[in-house]
Structure formats: C-alpha cells, structure tokens
Design a protein around this nucleic acid. Structure first.
Lengths: 159, 159
DNA sequence: CTTGACCTTCCCACCATGTCAGGGTTCATG
DNA sequence: CATGAACCCTGACATGGTGGGAAGGTCAAG
C-alpha cells in the first residue's frame, strides 16, 4: 500500500496521500466502475496516472466522490449533480441557485411518490376484494381486463 | 381504412374486424413501437400479417393490449405482466396466485415510496435552512460536502 | 401514376449500474 | 530475482421501458 509515497511517514505532511481506484472506492462508497464512468462522462476530471497507467486519487478527489455519492443517495440525477458540483466549486455562487435545484428535485420526488401512492391505493382495494384462494374468480384480473368493474370503478374519484 | 375487409358492412358479423398497428395503438393507448416490442420479447404472440406484411390485430388482441396497458399503469413490471397474462388466460388459476403477485408489487412500491420520502424529508430540512439569496453560504452544499454539519446530523434518527 | 399516410426492419440513445473477458502492474514473499 | 496474489486497465454487453430515426415497402385516394 501507499503506492508511491515515500515510506517515510513522520517528515512528509501526509497531505499528498494518493490512492488507487480500489481504495478510493472503498473509502467513498462509489464503486470503481462508477468512478471510471464518472470520469468518462466528464463529471470528474481525469486524474493523474502512475507510470503503469493506474489512476491515482488524492484526498480532495475523495472529497468530490463522497459529494457525488451523497447526492446520489438523495436521489439527484447525474445532470443535477453536474450542476451541484459546479456550484460547489464556485465560491461565489448564489445559494438561491442551489436551493432552487433542491426544490425542483423535491417536487419531482413528490410527483413520483404521488403516482406510486395512487397505484398502491388502487391495488390495495383490488387485493382486499380478492378471495385469494383456489378459486379462479379474481377482481384484480377483472380490473386489468377492463371488465364492467363493480369494485373500483377505476377509482376515478377519491384522487 | 379497413384494409382488407370487404367494404360490405351490414352482412358480415363485424366480429372479424382487423386493425393495423397504428389503429391498434390509438385504440389501446399502447404505442406501435411498444406493440412491436412486446411481440419481439414474446409478451404477445405474433399476429397475422397482410399479404403486404402488415401486422393485423383483431379485437381480442386489442383486449390483451389494453390489459397490458392497464397493468403498466399500475406499475407492474414486464416480468410480472407476463405472469399476469398467463394467469388471465388460465381459466383455472387460483386467485391466491394473482393476489400474491399484487401484494408483492404493493410491497415493492411501498419500499420505494419510503425511500423517496426519506429523501424528501432530508431535502426539505436542508432547503428550510438555506437562505436562498445571493450569498454563497448554503447548508445544502455543506451537507453534500459532508461538512461538520450543524443542521441535519444526516438525519440518522427519526427514520 | 403520383402523393401522402402508413407500415416494415434495423440501429442507436437514454440512465445508472453490473458483469465478464483478456490482458497489464504492483508488491510482498520466497 | 522470480513468482503469485491482488489489483488495475480497456472494452464490450446487459439491464428496463421507451423514444427516435433511417431507408425502404404498401396502400388508397386523387
């Protein structure tokens, strides 16, 4: 380990620690595959390489990777993260821009949540009315088949 | 229109109505593109063709397509729909099977909803604490950057 | 016969991630 | 110094569900 740092540990300020992609992956929670991918799509800059063509990452690179990982955890898309990164790096960004981006994302999330909740409501109604035994009658299939439909009336109301 | 049916309308029982893929698409809400796709992946059988190699759809085919469309609306995956279709066609299915499939799907949906709601909670907290003006200070970016983090404490609790 | 609307097949793109193959590098140990 | 394990490199292909487009065939109406 410590690929190219002098084995000298006490004298050097340890700032220049460099890591291979595998170490960067375990240290940041971003898989090596994804790190390479982010590089090819230009989300992160190309890093230095060793003479043997291995990518090397310094601590500030890890910081960026953790930023990306955290943003993914919050559900931001790559496109949004690209913007977030540039705002992060821009010391004079207006926080309103960041805030707007986050609010837009929250609205997207809420829209998706609403859509899925509507599905859940319909499905739960159907499930409630299905015997769930060995008999073939099944309101779920009847609903999907668009049959006269005594049960849900396709839940046009109550949305 | 009515590509190959005799223009005779009164005598023929009108059962044998056949439609081109475009008509099938507008009548079912499934795009022509998707109808072809469903055929190639074996979700629906290959239909008859006209002498000019056009696909033709009869009313029962439209019924199947509407079934698929409705199932997509409810968020079922292609794999699940494949099963649902076979259960639908099997007159002696036990309704328990259908019910279980629906319940599993509901659980998947709820898990996704929960995950997204967690994102929303975190983001809304961050948004609340962001001034959103011309100043660069921004708790959102600070959180993403993993800074000491006075605001959310990454919301470890309250899950 | 021409025109325009429709159809055919085939290929590419998205998004984020994983997997696999075939080969090269690094480094500790023998 | 040589070897082997662990790691890295690139590149290709898959996922799921959908859209887009190119290049060409078919149909019906004018």
């Amino acid at each position: 380990m410590n690929l190219h740092t002098p084995s000298n540990t006490a004298r050097v300020p340890a700032k220049a620690a460099r890591h291979t992609i595998g170490r960067a992956a375990t240290l940041t929670g971003v898989s090596a595959k994804m790190i390479r991918h982010y590089e090819t799509i230009g989300l992160i800059p190309r890093t230095n390489r060793t003479p043997g063509n291995y990518r090397t990452y310094k601590d500030s690179d890890l910081h960026t990777l953790r930023f990306i990982q955290r943003a993914r955890t919050l559900g931001f898309s790559m496109a949004q993260i690209r913007v977030l990164l540039s705002l992060w790096r821009n010391r004079s960004r207006p926080s309103a821009q960041v805030r707007k981006l986050a609010i837009d994302h929250v609205m997207e999330l809420k829209a998706k949540i609403d859509a899925m909740q509507a599905m859940v409501r319909t499905l739960e109604t159907l499930v409630q009315h299905c015997h769930g035994d060995t008999r073939p009658e099944c309101p779920i299939l009847e609903d999907l088949a668009g049959e006269p439909d005594k049960v849900t009336s396709r839940q046009k109301a109550s949305r």
